[in-house]
Every structure is written in structure tokens, then in C-alpha cells.
Write a protein that binds this DNA or RNA. Structure first.
Lengths: 209, 209
DNA sequence: ATACCGTTTAACCATTTGGTTAACAAATAT
DNA sequence: ATATTTGTTAACCAAATGGTTAAACGGTAT
């Protein structure tokens, strides 16, 4: 045995290649031969390390999801003050999505195509499900102290994620409709790291009447 | 000849079936046999009416895109007052996306998978590209009159679409993470028809200081 | 009646694709 | 040294898939 750890070097190479191909082409669009080529190995090796396309896909999907959700968890569960938390979330999700827009597109598309059972199976077990209660508690505190007006934690998160992620995953349409160059688009998204949290905080902060 | 109009009944049936299958499974996931079965006809008929899978897909993709973009256009180019326009946009896009969440997921996914040339080709010709200038002009007016603070039309639209569409296309994740039943989720999205425009208008309205 | 033309089908074909097998190579253990 | 296990490959296979063909069907005109 060359490698005592769970994953050999080859296995890692396969996983990287599979991730790239699956994210770009989706489960059905990706061919095992594509992945083998991308990894620079024989197709049969894919089946040696991962039994089937399904198993390989599941692994890639799990990992991709974990990247996005674990970050959410991390920030949600931190003991940052609420407004800071909001700013961090926006910054993290814009940065992360800009660097890898394939991931949310991939997740949304695949979750949509696959049966409920598949999703439940994938999303359970690993620390993917965020500890949502902590945010709810924190918001309740802030409401009680009179700093913010009553809001649902769900809405707050929907707003943050929608504002940060959507324009990036819909980038081709946005650019086409609004005639934006890559440079302009990037600048706008960079601005939004500030404007989105400002807007969100303003929408929940109690105004002095 | 049984039918003088451009599209025979069978052709329409095929198109409907293809739309359902393509939206649900994506270009690669959809099989010609699936579509034939769904339409209740022989596979060869698909090729009789539409030369190839590619051609059939292109047609479906064009139509699906048109549904979403033509509505945007319609509202943008109306002579509604700005705040009303915002409310209309939110209502229209939440309603439309709730009724057919597959469409934006489908568009985003396919646009992402296909080459730039494909997109440009698809999006040009038919009235898909929204007349964006009219909104920009309207906003400029409102800024000059001092009713709203300076904002970019691009950001405004990104905000509206992100807030309205994203939570719905990411529904399975949202529901899973936040433990929301279908009923709760629907109620929240229905509320958002009001809360989103309120939030957006509030964010651009000039406050009396 | 029958020739004609658009529509529809069953059967077929070539290629692609996920997966297997058997043999070969390279470590590792005895 | 040599048997054994692990990693890797080329060749192969069966099923699925997009697409074609030739024949049949059903009106319509002659």
C-alpha cells in the first residue's frame, strides 16, 4: 500500500476531475470517459475507486454542498454581533459564489432533478444542516432589546442569499440584458458586498421616530 | 392536409411534452423516447416535425425564456409610476416562479452549460432582450425630482429578481434548512409579494431628515 | 376505383455509454 | 526469490440512445 490515508493520490485526482466535469456539465451531461480523460487515467479506474457513476456523483455532490453550507453554519454559529454577522454572510457568499459560481447552479439544478429521497439522504448525516436556532435566538434578543423591528430569521436569510447569490448565478442573463462587461459586472458585485448588508440592516433597524 | 396553420395539433402536443420533459430533466437528462411517450406518439414523429433533439431543445428553450423575459419587458416598458412598477415586478415574478419554478432553474442551468455563442444566438432575434433604457430614464427622472436617492437601475433589478426568484428556485434547500412545511413556505412567499417591494422602495426612497 | 400526398408507425442502424473482465505492472509481504 | 495483494490498462459487452428507412394509413382529388 502506497498511501495509508483513506484517499490515495489517484483517488484524489479522480475526485478533482469528477468535480470539475460534474459541476460544468451536470450529472447527465458528464460522461465517465470525460472524467477519466480529465484525470488522465483509464476509465476502468473510476470504477475501481468508486463503484459506479452514481456513487461518484454522490460523493462530488456531497462535497460541493458541504463547501457552501458549512460556511453558512460557521458564520451563523459564531458569536458575532448580529449586524456584523450579516456583513460577514454577504461578503462570504458573494466572494465564494464569484470564485465558484458553478457550485450553487449545480446544487440547485441537481436538487431539482432528483427525488426527495435523494436529497434527504444527501443532506443528512454530514454537518450540512445549519444550526438555524442560534440565529433565531439572536434575533429574538435584538427585537426584545428594541434595536431591530420584528423579523423572521427565515426572511432575513432568504434576503441575504437571494441578493448575494442570484445575480451571480444568473450572470449571463444579467450581463446580456444590461449590457455589462465582465469588468463592470465584477465591480458591481464587489460594491454589493457593502450595499447589500447596508440595505438589509437598514430594513430591520428600528428608526428613531 | 389536415391542418392549414403553421402548427398541427400533433406538433403542439410534441412541443408541450418536450417542454415538460426538458424542464424537468434538462437537455441531457431528457430522452427522445421520454418525450415521445409523454406525447403519446412514435419516436420517429419527433424527427419528422423537428429535425433533431437539438432543434427541439432550442425551440423549447426559446419559448421558456420568452415567457420569463417578455413579462419583464412588458412591465418595464409600461408607463407605470416607479414604485408601482416595482410592486408589479415583484408580484409578477413571485407568482410566475411559484407557478413554474422549473423555468428559471432550467434557464440558469442550460445557459450555464452552453457556450456563449449558443446564448447569444438564442437570446437575439425574438423580443427577449428587455428595453432597459426606459427604466434607466425613469429612475433618472425620480432622482432629479428628489424623490429617490441615486441608484443604478442594474442594482434595482438585481435586487428585485434575486429577492423574488432565488428563494423559490432554492426551495428544497430553504425548506430543509429552515424546517418549513409547504404551507409555511407558500405563506412566506405570499407575504414577500408585499414585504419585498416595501423593503426595496424603502431602500431607495429619500428620507426626510 | 385509384393515384396522390401528408402523417404515422415498426423495425432497424450506428454510436455512445456505463460497466466488466482478464491480463499486466508494481509494490508488499513471506 | 517468490507469492500476494494493490493499482492500472486495453479490450470487450450489453443496454441505451439519437436518428433513419421503408412500409402502411387516411384523407382528397381525379
Amino acid at each position: 500500500m502506497v498511501n495509508t490515508s483513506a484517499t490515495s493520490e489517484t483517488e484524489a485526482r479522480i475526485l478533482e476531475a469528477a468535480t470539475r466535469i460534474f459541476r460544468a456539465k451536470g450529472r447527465d451531461g458528464a460522461k465517465m470517459q470525460d472524467i477519466a480523460d480529465e484525470a488522465g487515467i483509464n476509465k476502468a479506474l473510476l470504477h475501481y475507486y468508486f463503484r459506479s457513476k452514481d456513487k461518484l456523483f454522490e460523493q462530488v455532490f456531497r462535497d460541493s454542498s458541504a463547501i457552501f453550507f458549512s460556511r453558512l453554519n460557521e458564520i451563523l454559529q459564531s458569536d458575532l454581533e448580529l449586524f456584523t454577522k450579516i456583513r460577514r454572510l454577504c461578503d462570504a457568499y458573494i466572494t465564494m459564489t464569484m470564485e465558484n459560481p458553478f457550485i450553487p447552479i449545480f446544487i440547485i439544478g441537481e436538487v431539482n432533478r432528483n427525488a426527495e429521497s435523494f436529497i434527504t439522504n444527501i443532506f443528512s448525516g454530514n454537518g450540512i444542516k445549519p444550526e438555524f436556532k442560534s440565529l433565531e435566538k439572536q434575533i429574538a434578543e435584538e427585537i426584545r432589546s428594541g434595536r431591530i423591528r420584528p423579523v423572521r430569521a427565515e426572511e432575513l436569510l432568504m434576503n441575504i442569499l437571494g441578493l448575494c447569490i442570484f445575480p451571480i448565478i444568473a450572470k449571463p442573463m444579467m450581463q446580456h440584458n444590461m449590457s455589462l462587461s465582465d469588468k463592470e459586472f465584477n465591480r458591481i458585485m464587489d460594491d454589493r458586498k457593502k450595499t447589500i448588508p447596508a440595505m438589509i440592516i437598514d430594513s430591520i433597524k428600528k428608526k428613531n421616530t
